[in-house]
């Protein structure tokens, strides 16, 4: 490939990035420095730090962000605990079963996301199947319902990268550990787990990052106390028609979203061989 062709080939994704990532972000940043006004669109351009300062100082946003981080963290841990055995089982399954099992993991994507969450509303309602069969107390519009929705939605994003990693583990390593006298739990802790760290990190990032900004699931399944950052942002934009504050929330959220995976990815590097 000549230098000229390479430049042309690279121009397409670069343009794509500028158009769909850099430009929208620049607009959000611009609005974050503007002042709200009664006009169309509802702000006047300028340079004020008031919005960013308000979002940083008002406990409403800080609490919502912390709550979002906690919800995303707990959802990620549950997904990991549930997803790891599933991924391991699929990786160890006879090869003729494997594709069918993977398909089963991805099958929910064949139906619309909103439709599936709405189905959960029916399942979790007071006169729904789950409450009636299990005799649990009121479920819908509680944190439990929200976590069920989150784990249900994000589980495949954990299972698939874990599977990709686990299916490539060399089985002879496990056999060697067993031959050397390690009981199965030690094989798991000392061999499988360390080797699957990149898969865990990828899965955790794929679950954690979108879960922080999740709006639909808490809005539909959680109660009014579930003021997560995605919902707060939505309300600033749609209920309060306050685009500058909404943009300021988005800017702070972005800062956090960039910082966290950077730390996670760093921690996830495969440890050097001893």
């Amino acid at each position: 490939m000549t230098a000229a062709t390479r430049r042309w080939v690279l121009a397409v994704p670069t343009l794509w990035l500028i158009l769909l990532l850099v430009a929208p972000l620049a607009i959000v940043l611009l609005i974050a420095f503007a002042t709200p006004a009664d006009r169309i669109p509802p702000f006047s351009l300028g340079f004020t730090l008031d919005n960013l300062r308000l979002v940083a100082s008002d406990p409403l946003y800080r609490d919502a962000l912390l709550r979002s981080l906690r919800v995303a963290g707990i959802s990620t841990v549950i997904c990991l605990v549930m997803g790891f055995p599933a991924a391991l089982a699929i990786a160890r399954a006879p090869s003729r079963w494997r594709n069918a099992l993977l398909l089963a993991v991805m099958l929910p994507f064949w139906t619309g996301f909103l439709m599936r969450i709405n189905a959960w509303i029916g399942l979790l309602a007071d006169d729904g199947l789950i409450v009636r069969l299990l005799g649990t107390p009121h479920l819908l519009y509680t944190d439990t319902a929200m976590y069920i929705g989150m784990v249900y939605t994000y589980l495949p994003f954990m299972v698939l990268p874990l599977y990709a990693r686990l299916s490539r583990l060399d089985p002879t390593l496990m056999q060697a550990a067993a031959d050397l006298g390690a009981p199965p739990w030690r094989v798991f802790l000392r061999v499988i787990l360390p080797l699957s760290r990149p898969g865990i990190a990828a899965g955790a990032a794929l679950v954690f990052v979108p879960a922080i900004g999740e709006y639909v699931i808490p809005a539909l399944l959680g109660g009014p106390q579930a003021q997560l950052i995605g919902k707060v942002l939505w309300e600033e934009f749609f209920s309060n028609r306050d685009w500058p504050t909404a943009s300021a929330v988005a800017v702070w959220l972005l800062v956090v979203l960039i910082a966290i995976p950077a730390v996670v990815m760093r921690a996830a590097k495969v440890p050097p061989k001893r």
């Binding site: 006009r39 669109p41 509802p42 934009f237 749609f238 209920s239 309060n240």
Partner: peptide, 9 residues
């Protein structure tokens, strides 16, 4: 709120 969000955009 919903109405104004649409019209002010």
């Amino acid at each position: 709120e919903t109405l104004e969000a649409k019209l002010f955009a």
